[in-house]
Amino acid sequence: MKKMLLILALSVFGFANAQKGTILVGGNIGYNSQNVDYGVVDIKTNSFEFSPKVGYQLHDNWTVGGEFGLESSKQNNGGSESKFNSFKAGAFVRYTVPLTETFSVFADLGAGFHNQKVKNYDDEGDLLSTTKADGLYAGVTPALFINMKKGFGLNFSIGGLGYETLSFDNNGPDVKSFYFNFGKTINIGVSKNF
């Protein structure tokens, strides 16, 4: 009975209010820390990721904008150390379908440029090597939006579909990767329409 009342209440509220002409601001922040003890060597990895988005709502269903991403990680291998930094900048198009006033589903199509830099240090902190790479990325990410109050909400996604290229400096390899990771990742983000 409670489920029926909830469904009826959601039906009465109808679809989400049109947000044409508003600015969308959102993004994700992530932190990961891992410690693996191999007995002889203890490997510690810490990583941080920040990926904001800013867009303009052209229509009730369509949003276009820019997306950025910064990622930094450090791995300590029992004395030696590796530092990884990555930057992404691109554009996205979002198509949103409101289900109720509270719930909407959307898909983001994003594409742009990305680069990464890896520095390796020895036990005494001296720089051993630096590796740089530049490339392109494109991806589709479906997600669920939960409107908490007045355009402020949470975004939930469980993976996506994408393609990336990286070309390493100094006659390094050219890497092309395709991923399909539905159900393997979970992302939670925050967004606000102004």
Rank of each mutant, 00 (worst) to 15 (best):
T102I: 14
N147K: 12
P98H: 05
I188F: 15
G151A: 12
F145G: 07
H114E: 05
G55W: 09
E101V: 02
L70R: 04
D122T: 01
E67K: 08
V25F: 14
V190E: 09
G65Q: 06
G125Y: 07
K150P: 01
A16G: 12
N120H: 10
G65T: 05
I7C: 10
L144E: 07
V40P: 05
D174M: 03
V190G: 09
G139D: 14
G159E: 11
Y31Q: 05
S167I: 02
I146C: 04
L99R: 04
G125S: 05
F15T: 08
K119F: 00
F106C: 05
A89R: 01
I158N: 02
Y38D: 11
V25I: 15
D122M: 03
D126C: 00
A143M: 12
G39I: 13
T130N: 08
N32K: 07
Y163W: 13
F194A: 05
N171L: 02
G26P: 10
F68D: 02
A18M: 07
D134R: 02
T100L: 07
G153E: 09
G65M: 06
S72Y: 13
F145C: 01
K20S: 15
A9F: 09
G55P: 09
S11E: 07
N77P: 00
E124Y: 11
S73D: 08
S47Q: 11
G55C: 12
S47W: 02
G153C: 09
Y95P: 05
L24K: 13
F92R: 08
N193Y: 15
N171T: 01
F68N: 01
V175F: 06
I23C: 02
A89D: 01
I23A: 08
D122Y: 01
T130W: 02
S157D: 15
D174Q: 11
G14P: 09
K44R: 13
S33E: 03
A107S: 15
H59N: 15
N181V: 06
V41P: 00
K74N: 13
K74Y: 03
F92K: 08
E164M: 02
Q19K: 14
F92P: 07
G162N: 06
F182N: 03
A107M: 13
G21W: 05
G159Y: 12
A107K: 02
Y56N: 07
Q34W: 00
D108P: 08
N76E: 14
F106I: 00
A91D: 07
Q57V: 14
K2I: 04
K74L: 04
T22Y: 06
P142I: 10
T131L: 10
G153N: 07
S82G: 07
F84K: 03
N46Q: 10
M148R: 01
L128R: 06
N46C: 00
I146G: 02
L99H: 02
F92W: 06
V64G: 02
I146M: 12
D108N: 15
V36K: 06
L8W: 09
L58W: 11
L5M: 09
F48E: 06
S33D: 10
G39V: 14
G21Q: 06
G160K: 05
Q19N: 13
Y95C: 08
N61H: 13
N115G: 14
N187W: 03
M148W: 04
D134F: 03
D42S: 14
N32C: 01
A9P: 00
